Amino acid sequence: MPATSPYAARLAEVPVERREVEIDGSVTAYWVYGPPPAEAAATIVAVHGFRGEHHGLEPVIAFLPGVRVLSPDLPGFGETPPLPSGRHDLEAYTGWLTAFTAAVAPGAVVLGHSFGSIVASAAVAEGLRTPRLILINPIGAPALEGPKGLLTRLAILYYTLGARLPERLGTALLRHPLIVRAMSIAMAKTKDPVLRRFIHDQHDTYFSRFADRDQLHDAFVTSVSHDVRAFAPRIDVPTLLIAAQRDDITPIEAERRLATMFPHAELVEIADVGHLIHYETPAEAAAAIRRFLRLPVAPGR
């Protein structure tokens, strides 16, 4: 039985519509939340993290009433098939995001979470036009240098085995529910049992919705081979970093250094949360976004 979302009531008040758009010969599935363009206080294109899909950012969207959010499934995840080229490196993902934004919401604010922060930053640095950039749990340092670098090395071994074992066995390893649950437990910081059940249910339900093991391995290599630092100096639009003080992937000290690398950046730190800001503290993240976009305070806050 699915776990109850603590944010279900709020999200139910937000209009949502599934759409598709052809990008470079392939179909991208995306979801449009909020009012039509003429009535929206702002429009955001939101890019989810590694092994996630559009559902992961819904708790934040629930606290952004009046904002139009277009949330695609990244190529190879959720309902979007892999890229026709078969390449899932950073250049391919940034090219896809630039084309997607131009097709469905040119001039929108761009938001990226975790791996999405790398894709969004690289795209903006390479010329994707946006008035503002928002990064949640940005990858602000090499994964191998984080406080849990050993776990990253184990993850590299895990994805390598998944790619090299016989296909059926490798795919089963990558989708194994015990490993997915272990990842979820490692990332969650909340002690609230209801919220923990919801987080684990989200990962159980959506974390294995990748297209195939080769695409997943390529995306993983991309995620651990890059970080936002390489692109920050070339991003000349106002940028908001929403960082967690207990993030095991990028420590807060590295996030503070990252903020100084942008020409125009603001850092908002959230205490008592790790790499799951979008699940554990979405109200705080949304409040920071509203301030950054100079929007009125959300009703009920």
Rank of each mutant, 00 (worst) to 15 (best):
A141D: 09
P177N: 08
I156W: 12
R234L: 05
A172R: 14
S26D: 03
R132Q: 14
A42N: 12
R256Y: 04
A41E: 15
L174E: 09
L97T: 05
R175W: 05
R229K: 14
F63R: 01
K189C: 04
R19V: 00
D214S: 06
A288L: 13
A298E: 10
P299L: 08
E20R: 13
P72I: 00
R164E: 14
P263Y: 03
I156S: 11
G274A: 10
A285V: 10
A103W: 05
I277K: 12
F207D: 06
P106V: 04
R234C: 06
P282T: 08
G86K: 09
H275F: 09
P72V: 01
Q215K: 00
R10F: 06
I139F: 02
P72R: 03
F262Q: 00
P37K: 02
T94N: 10
R301D: 11
T130G: 04
M187D: 13
E126L: 05
G78R: 05
M1S: 07
V104Q: 03
H275D: 13
D192C: 04
V268S: 01
R175E: 02
V297D: 13
A92S: 15
V228P: 05
I199H: 13
R196V: 01
D201A: 08
R209F: 03
G78P: 09
Y206S: 07
G76W: 11
D89H: 04
R181Q: 13
S85Q: 03
A172D: 10
F231V: 03
R87C: 09
R209K: 15
T98C: 05
M183R: 10
T80R: 12
P82M: 14
D24F: 09
N137D: 15
I199S: 08
R257K: 07
F100C: 06
A99L: 07
P37N: 04
F231I: 03
I199T: 02
P131S: 12
G116F: 13
L258C: 09
A287E: 12
H217P: 06
D192N: 13
E13R: 15
E255F: 01
P147G: 15
Y159T: 10
F100K: 01
A254V: 00
F115G: 01
F292I: 06
D236G: 14
L57S: 09
D272R: 15
H278R: 11
L11T: 06
R10P: 09
A298H: 08
I249D: 03
T98S: 13
D248F: 02
